[in-house]
Simulated scan of single mutants.
Amino acid sequence: MRFYAGFGYHGSNFEQTYRCYPASFFDKPHLEGGDKVIMPPSALDRLASLHIEYPMLFELHNDATQRISHCGVLEFVAEEGMIIMPYWMMQNMLLQEGDTVRVKNTTLPKGTYVKLQPHTTDFLDISNPKAILEKTLRNFSCLTTSDSIMVAYNNKQYYIDIVETKPASAVSIIETDCEVDFAPPLDYKEPEKTQQPSVPTSEATAEDEDAKVEDELKFKPFTGSGKRLDGKASKLQATEIPSASRSSPSDSNKRVNQEMVAPASSGASNSTRQKSGKLVFGSSANSNKEPQKAPVKDDEYPKKDEPKFQAFSGKSYSLKR
Rank of each mutant, 00 (worst) to 15 (best):
R2I: 07
F3G: 07
G6A: 09
T17Y: 03
T17M: 05
R19Y: 06
R19H: 12
C20E: 01
A23V: 05
S24A: 08
S24G: 01
F25G: 00
K28R: 12
K28L: 09
K28V: 06
H30K: 05
L31H: 03
E32P: 02
G33A: 08
V37G: 00
I38F: 03
I38W: 02
P40E: 04
P40C: 02
S42R: 07
S49D: 02
L50C: 02
Y54R: 12
L60Y: 01
A64H: 08
R67C: 09
I68Y: 01
H70A: 04
G72I: 03
E75S: 05
F76I: 03
A78S: 14
E80L: 00
E80H: 05
M82W: 04
M82H: 06
I84N: 02
P86Y: 03
M90N: 00
Q91V: 08
N92W: 03
G98L: 05
R102D: 00
T106H: 01
K110Q: 09
K110G: 07
T112K: 14
T112V: 15
H119Y: 11
H119E: 13
D122Q: 14
I126S: 02
N128K: 04
P129Y: 13
L133K: 03
L143D: 03
T144W: 00
S146F: 13
N154P: 02
Q157Y: 10
Q157P: 05
Y158M: 05
D161C: 06
V163N: 04
V163I: 15
V163D: 00
A170K: 03
V171W: 05
T176E: 13
V180M: 14
P185A: 13
L186S: 08
L186T: 12
Y188K: 05
T194V: 13
Q195A: 10
P200H: 02
A204R: 07
T205H: 09
D208Q: 10
D210W: 09
K212N: 07
K212R: 14
E214N: 11
F222K: 10
G224N: 10
G224I: 11
L236Y: 08
Q237I: 06
Q237P: 00
T239D: 08
E240W: 09
P249L: 06
S252K: 12
K254H: 14
R255K: 14
N257H: 12
N257V: 11
Q258F: 07
V261N: 13
A262S: 14
A264W: 04
S266F: 01
S269F: 05
N270Q: 10
N270K: 11
R273S: 13
Q274L: 09
Q274D: 02
K275I: 11
F281A: 11
S284K: 08
A285P: 02
S287V: 00
E290M: 04
Q292R: 11
D298A: 15
E300Q: 13
Y301I: 08
P307H: 12
F309P: 03
S313H: 10
S313T: 15
S313N: 08
G314Q: 12
G314W: 11
K315L: 15
S316I: 13
L319E: 09
K320S: 10
